[in-house]
Design a protein around this nucleic acid. Structure first.
Lengths: 152, 152
DNA sequence: GAACATTCAATTGTACACAATTGAATTTTG
DNA sequence: CAAAATTCAATTGTGTACAATTGAATGTTC
């Protein structure tokens, strides 16, 4: 009748994955009120960051950068288009590809977004150095996981 | 006609938030093939971790632990119930609360999940110490964000 | 103790994620 | 060059996330 306690390694608080999952959602939540005035969701903001860096990417190229597939990007980009921030156009050279370009409004939005990173940095209560270290550890982790695919 | 380049602080690769977002999704993706034989999604796995630790929690208590609201948990718990892993029952003491209890099958699943954390640790290619450090940094970050609410 | 307020889980509606499939366009091959 | 294979974005279907609302149950107050 005695029930075994759960083994330590299955405790929620021991899991790196949950720490990651919780932190990611918390940070996204912190962005929400900052992005709401711009009319952007957090994933839409990430797409805009990429487009502000480099114009005329295809859906595939955007997906490679953000690790998202067309199932996620296509509807998201349609919403950005409906909001008047981007244009979507089949490429003449290769009709399979759809090129995403900023509209004037889309480019102009960059100015409004310009102080978001600083604002976030303040709220995270981390030094610039701590932020960089943590960011680079996470990037290293992600790179590691993409290099070693799931061997069956 | 000259277009200004995007300022450095708006570059995608500079963002801690994207590093977090990408890492979280990558890790979740790594769990997927391990959880599939158990018939669990990753959020469902997190719920099971909590229930294996402590039985008879309410939806609210589960939500407090996982930082999820009833809009997410109610349908998720219905799916776990449909899979025969949990029971959902209104509390007699307070009919507003719904208590979640493991079924025999739900408890038994713990044995099958038992080697998942070790398997993941191997794939993450981090030392136990590195994992703990990173995990604790992320927990600290999350705690920080929950303490300082969005002052308008 | 009846009006009022609060606390629950559930519901509604919008927006991701992602696996799997589709179908058109292009590339490769025999 | 024509058939087969590949590469795209789009679509379909399932499962989260989360804000906002609903409605029942419980607490509080006068």
């Amino acid at each position: 009748m005695e029930r075994k306690p759960t083994p330590d390694h299955l405790l929620l608080d021991r899991q790196l994955c949950f720490a990651l999952y919780a932190a990611s959602r918390s940070v996204t939540g912190l962005y929400r009120p900052l992005l709401e005035p711009l009319g952007l969701t957090y994933p839409q903001y990430l797409v805009m960051l990429v487009l502000w860096e480099q114009e005329g990417l295809t859906v595939r190229e955007l997906g490679a950068r953000l690790q998202l597939d067309s199932g996620t990007l296509t509807p998201l980009l349609k919403r950005l288009q409906a909001a008047g921030l981007v244009d979507r156009r089949r490429r003449a050279e290769d009709e399979r590809e759809v090129e995403i370009r900023l509209t004037e409004a889309g480019l102009a939005l960059r100015e409004q977004a310009s102080d978001i990173p600083e604002c976030m940095a303040q709220r995270l209560q981390l030094s610039l150095e701590q932020m960089q270290t943590l960011r680079d550890e996470l990037k290293q982790l992600t790179r590691q996981l993409q290099l070693s695919p799931t061997e069956e």
